[in-house]
Design a protein around this nucleic acid. Structure first.
Lengths: 148, 148
DNA sequence: ATTTTAACTTGCTTTATGCAAGTTAAAATT
DNA sequence: AATTTTAACTTGCATAAAGCAAGTTAAAAT
């Protein structure tokens, strides 16, 4: 039950991006990982937007196959799988941030705090760099390969 | 036959963006308008990715309702409708550009030319500003209200 | 040894997408 | 003026994806 069997593969960067994460759920999983620090199936499942179990399983497999995330078994609990963003996934941060800025401007119900919007507008690069490092530090604790 | 009846409306900016253009087609129509200068139904229809007629009609209506585009009748040809980006639609340019940059990096078949990628990386703001002005100038020719 | 928990899978219903053909009104051609 | 062509759709039906409830498996906790 995949999101889309037909990949467009025209070389167009917008089409490529849409084929990668242009569906109703993929980017929400990435958001949960990037902004909320979520790492496990049940965390994603209990996220506010209530993704269906089969769809979540499918998206995680798909994102892994696309190299956006990787899956590892929790060393402390063999039942639990931990999902982390790869560098390819972390590289989506600027896209997410631009979406944030746009939505903060046009969604009257936005939860984006004015001071966050202001930081994005006036100090974008630094904001993204900080976020990136936060993610990398969080993940460094459990990705064995990153510790040489 | 809408894209999605259920809007999530959680206040989350990522969810809001996805509810607006997080489907397989909306952003391609916006791309056609922003980058290719397309303005009519048939131009969108004949675009490389081959959107279905009913889906195109639906997306155009939806984008108009969301205030991303507006529809006007061609003064020179009463059969033809012209679609133009609103300021809300033009404000999506940064999102599109970040997607371009990401895809240019990760799609081995990207059509993004190295010099374009380079401009985005090194001169992002100016690049976006130029694009924005190009769009506004193109549209100014036919949007009666913008000519005071 | 039994129960609970985490991560799924399966089957079925609903919704969205895809495709071919048909409609309407305005413009161009004869 | 009548006919054909063109632009922008709509309609009906098939296929595919998403949503929902229930069931399975293996590891951890009791």
């Amino acid at each position: 039950m995949p999101k889309q069997t037909k990949k467009r593969d025209t070389g167009c960067p917008i089409a490529f991006a849409l084929d990668t994460f242009g569906d109703r759920w993929s980017l929400l999983v990435i958001r949960d990982m990037a902004f909320k620090g979520f790492q496990s199936y049940n965390q994603f499942l209990n996220s506010e937007e209530k993704i269906a179990t089969n769809v979540l399983a499918d998206r995680l497999a798909e994102l892994e196959e696309l190299g956006i995330i990787s899956k590892l078994t929790d060393p402390a609990d063999g039942r639990r799988h931990l999902y982390v963003l790869t560098s390819k996934g972390i590289a989506l941060l600027p896209v997410l941030i631009e979406m944030m800025q746009w939505s903060a401007q046009y969604d009257v119900n936005t939860i984006v705090k004015p001071e966050i919007l202001s930081r994005i507008v006036h100090d974008r690069e630094a904001f993204i760099t900080q976020l990136r490092e936060k993610i990398i530090n969080r993940q460094a604790l459990l990705a064995p390969m990153s510790r040489a």
